[in-house]
């Protein structure tokens, strides 16, 4: 069994903030790392590897620094890694990314399962997985919260708000993995360091039959962004339990939420 996991190298979303002086979003100079949700996908792949003796390949598009992300995922137990290097300033939308990734995956065929994280913590689009499946003509299950597989087929539970469906299907298929599925293992710093950079294979657009124009033709245009106003009222309610409940109801009614 061959499993390909798409991983993304992202800026640390917990560190994104608004510069108080300029009121601009601070995105540069932040630490970068592996997309947390992709770690769940890697973990699931590595579990299947242990169970079924699968081979796990990683694919990513990113700056040179994305080697860090791949090394971490390799230290978690993946076997191979493929990086399509772009400039750190280059932004890709989900259409561009899915096109490139699907070509990278095609190159790795035969592939039984493609796993993606449910979302990336920088863009929060939740599109790339589904788009890749479409391009590769693969059946696709999203938000997978439970997974088992054997050669030729898989059983996945997909959980959406308050419904859970269990789906049985044949491979090849693409699954997007929910963060609820597992707790990814944490390789030690040494284990990550000891992964040789030479294990990461560089892929060129030309190898995929694409040219640089793909980087310059986004399907989505960013017009601007605004920081949503968020105000807390910070109301403290005193009194006995029944008094407090009564005043809480009053407040909620005033807010028209009840």
């Amino acid at each position: 069994m061959h499993i390909v996991v798409c991983v993304k190298h992202v800026v640390d979303s917990t560190e994104i903030h608004v510069d108080k002086k300029t009121n601009e979003l601070v995105l540069r100079g932040l630490s970068t790392k592996i997309n947390d949700y992709d770690k769940n996908a890697v973990e699931e792949a590595v579990k299947l590897k242990k169970e079924l003796g699968a081979t796990v390949s990683l694919v990513t598009i990113g700056p040179r620094d994305a080697q860090k992300t791949l090394k971490e995922a390799l230290a978690m137990g993946a076997d191979d890694a493929y990086l399509l290097q772009i400039s750190p300033r280059q932004q890709l939308d989900t259409a561009q990314a899915s096109l490139i990734l699907s070509k990278m995956i095609e190159k790795l065929e035969p592939v039984d399962l493609v796993l993606c994280g449910e979302v990336s913590e920088d863009g929060y689009n939740s599109q790339t997985g589904a788009r890749i499946a479409e391009r590769l003509h693969l059946p696709h299950v999203s938000y997978v919260t439970k997974l088992s597989a054997q050669d030729g087929g898989y059983v996945a539970e997909s959980t959406l708000e308050d419904t859970a469906e269990t789906l049985k299907g044949a491979t090849p298929a693409l699954l997007t993995i929910s963060s609820a599925i597992n707790v990814p293992r944490l390789p030690t710093a040494i284990q990550i360091m000891k992964v040789r950079t030479s294990r990461i294979k560089n892929v060129k657009l030309a190898d995929l039959g694409l040219d640089d124009s793909v980087l310059e033709t986004p399907k989505v245009k960013m017009l601007g962004y605004e920081i949503p106003e968020q105000e807390r009222k910070n109301i403290m309610i005193d009194g006995t339990a029944s008094e407090a409940a009564a005043s809480l109801v009053k407040y909620l009614q005033e807010e028209k939420v009840m």
């Binding site: 640390d12 917990t14 560190e15 903030h17 601070v26 630490s31 790392k33």
Partner: peptide
């Protein structure tokens, strides 16, 4: 590792 503190609160 990310935020430079065990609380997971932003470093800034």
């Amino acid at each position: 590792e990310r935020n430079g503190n065990p609380y997971g609160l932003p470093s800034y």
